[in-house]
Design a binder for these strands. Structure first.
Lengths: 251, 251
DNA sequence: CGGATTCTTGAGCATATTCAATTGTGGTGG
DNA sequence: CCACCACAATTGAATATGCTCAAGAATCCG
């Protein structure tokens, strides 16, 4: 049940036609394997998803929509540690409570939750679940390695280009007006800035510069059009790594 | 066999008396479970450990010593993505080849390696191995979350304090001359700088300042003495999170 | 002891941040 | 439908923080 339509950005026609032979199918099968243990959570932007489940740990599986995992160390501003896309998994135990860890939807979407102890048992029993989990974890680990390299070594333009390029790869659709790629910007400027370890002002400036240099076309508020994906890729030192990781889509 | 002495910094007497009821015991049991599938690699500083194993992926388990996982994106300098301590695990598949990923010992030590496909089978069969793996992955994930927050949000002094504090927690021993904590600095300045997303010069300056402000005491080259661990903790916004993660040791 | 490496330190510079003012957008109620 | 408000995003000028480059000191290793 409820495996049906994706409520994410229902007003937008385009994003509904993803050219992905995505995890979608795998997720459907998975849900039947997980059976009655999953609770389905309809997410809404800004809502705070409790990490604990009856005092214990929880497992989350993103079915649709985009979520952020962030921590805030005392005296510093928030850091978005990961962006979760459909098919991604989170064990609440890895989010440091002492650092004010939170799981926050950026989007409307659907999130599956179950008790971690139950999920761990299923992992041991069901090979399909185990392999799904291990693949997801590996992908997210790789993603985080790239992220670390980006915020550790890239200048602001490179970071923004990397972020946009990843979004284009993971959620983009070919532009109707030829050539480019269109995708939603599910995160607010502040969220993106916190993800990239940048100031929101700096981020805004950088995106303005990208726009005026022609690689970006910012028609609507939460939407981006990349005219020349190759030009964008050229700005990101991580483009090759990202293609290797997510390249089973566009381009 | 070869589970014996730890060759790490054999010239140094102190570090050999760790006050950790560490993974050591667990590792010994683990080795028997893994049986004949593991190859033992004696590591030496700077040596490059091949990530691929006969063209396939590999699993690595750190038995002793310290290793770094780093990536280098074209046009930028190296980023150390993770520091691996005894008990840590690495699936070579998560290290992006396209980004020049490497696994490099910082130390003399012992590393176990086996074919990933075999390890994956063992994971499915042996509950002890699975739980060891999952715990290790969770710990390393949490570690990386803290790391991301550090390089994304901390200024240079906070980053250095965080690094030193973590080393003190994980590998420190109480100072013979009362009060403080002593530990090896297994990484070169450049390695540390690349880990923290800092310039080596800036790192050196920062450590000098810590020394002249009295929290640090840098007797030997590769060794640090922290006079007042609380003072150091106060400089790191991540101290609470680190204690929660590694606090089953000193302090 | 000499040579190579690693580390330290200084001066000048570049990049991103801060702070503040302005514009733009979405939602609410008249 | 418009006016209004709250909030998000943009932009500028001044500042600060860490980087670059280069020289010198310390340490390691043969």
């Amino acid at each position: 049940m409820t495996t049906g339509t994706n409520p994410q950005s229902t007003t937008r026609p385009s994003a509904g036609v993803p050219l992905c032979k995505r995890k979608g199918d795998g997720l459907a099968e998975l849900q039947t394997s997980l059976g009655s243990h999953v609770a389905t959570i309809r997410t809404r932007r800004g809502q705070n998803v409790a990490l604990a489940l009856d005092g214990g740990e929880a497992a989350f599986i993103v079915h649709s929509g985009v979520l952020t995992v962030s921590v805030t160390m005392p005296g510093t501003s928030r850091q978005v540690v990961a962006i979760l896309f459909p098919g991604d998994v989170l064990h609440s135990g890895v989010v440091p409570r002492e650092a004010d860890g939170t799981l926050t939807p950026a989007n409307a979407g659907e999130l599956w939750r179950l008790r971690w102890s139950i999920f761990a048992e299923l992992l041991a029993k069901d090979a399909a679940i185990a392999s799904f989990y291990h693949e997801a974890i590996d992908r997210q680990m790789t993603c985080r390695a790239i992220h670390v390299a980006a915020i550790g070594q890239f200048d602001c333009r490179q970071r923004v280009a990397t972020f946009l390029f990843e979004l284009a790869l993971r959620t983009g659709t070919p532009s109707p007006s030829g050539g480019g790629v269109v995708f939603d910007l599910p995160l607010s400027r502040i969220d993106v800035a916190d993800y990239l370890g940048l100031n929101a002002d700096t981020l805004s400036r950088t995106m303005s510069r990208l726009r005026s240099s022609g690689v970006l076309d910012h028609s609507e508020r939460n939407r981006a059009v990349v005219r020349d994906l190759r030009a964008l890729a050229a700005l990101s030192p991580a483009s090759r790594a990202l293609i290797a990781l997510h390249g089973d889509r566009v381009l």
